[in-house]
């Protein structure tokens, strides 16, 4: 009998290609991504009175706390920008990063019960987290714009102007989404085996905030500390965001370039390790 050459739609093998993201498959499951985003929103604030208002309350109170502690009590400089506005600018972009990172880095463990029963492209989960946090970021960005308007209106030496730099706004957002995604899938892959990372991450994120120029600016710190900040890819992006929005200092293109390079390296590593883990994590988680 002549064996007929058959066309197979799929082949299950011990290992995936190292770099294959199977984006075509992810695209096929786009409806699931949308539903996951929706689930995150609906589920999070069900049975709360204020609902999504919490997205707005959180940054206001945090920024106000920093204003009281750092500016009023600690007399810290904010490059001539109204301190509250300065803090809320940094917090808006930082919250996006921290939210994405903490949730994506939990991808495998938090979804072990679903992943153990059904296959769908695992990348859908971290991607949906990036998207749902982007919506939260959108809300908080609108809040930030409101304060930007308010502080320009109240005369205290700060005025918002339309500069060409505003066109660059998508850049820091893409960079921060990419960085948190890359770091998140990297950490989530490693935590399936080494749970220590989970503990390290929780306070790591808190500490990282202080090294990410969220409540300080590159100009307001000593030369040595600034050198440290430059090594932090997040700090460069936060600084870029603030430079674009409130113009406290000119854009540092070297920093932007450095962050982009780090993003690509982390993304490469993250995808390789995620692909490796995806196949076997159910046996180790």
């Amino acid at each position: 009998m002549v064996e007929e050459e058959q066309k197979w739609d799929d082949e299950i093998k011990p290992q995936n290609g190292l770099l294959s993201l199977r984006l075509k498959e992810v695209w096929k499951y786009r409806d699931l991504l949308v539903l996951f985003v929706r689930r995150d929103f609906v589920a999070e604030y069900k049975q709360t009175i204020l609902g999504p208002l919490w997205y707005i309350i959180q940054p206001i109170f945090t920024a106000y706390t920093y204003y009281l502690v750092l500016h009023r009590m600690g007399n810290m400089e904010t490059d001539g920008i109204p301190p509250f506005l300065f803090y809320i600018a940094g917090l808006t972009i930082w919250t996006y990063f921290a939210g994405c990172l903490t949730k994506t880095s939990d991808t495998f463990i938090a979804n072990a019960n679903i992943f153990g029963k059904v296959y769908f492209p695992r990348l859908i989960v971290p991607l949906s987290i990036i998207v749902s946090n982007l919506i939260k970021f959108g809300l908080q960005f609108i809040l930030f714009l409101a304060f930007l308007g308010y502080f320009s209106y109240v005369d205290n030496g700060f005025a918002f102007e339309f500069r060409w730099q505003l066109l660059l706004l998508p850049l820091p957002i893409i960079l921060i989404a990419g960085l948190s995604f890359a770091m998140g899938i990297l950490i989530s892959s490693l935590t399936t085996k080494y749970r220590d990372l989970k503990f390290a991450l929780t306070f790591g994120v808190q500490l990282l905030m202080f090294a990410s120029a969220v409540i300080i600016s590159f100009n307001s710190v000593s030369e040595e500390f600034r050198a440290v900040l430059r090594w932090n890819p997040i700090a460069n992006v936060v600084e870029l965001f603030k430079s674009i929005m409130i113009g406290h200092s000119p854009i540092d293109w070297n920093g932007v370039l450095y962050s982009s390079v780090v993003l690509f390296v982390l993304l490469f590593l993250g995808i390789v390790i995620f692909n490796k883990t995806e196949k076997t994590f159910m046996d180790t988680v």
Binding site: Q6, K7, W8, D9, D10, E11, I12, K13, P14, Q15, F115, G116, K117, V118, Y119, K279, T280, M282, D283
Partner: peptide, 14 residues
């Protein structure tokens, strides 16, 4: 169902 990968071998699916 692709929940976990095989150690060796392959499955071809149409």
């Amino acid at each position: 169902s692709k929940v976990t990968g095989p150690t060796t071998g392959s499955i071809k699916v149409k």
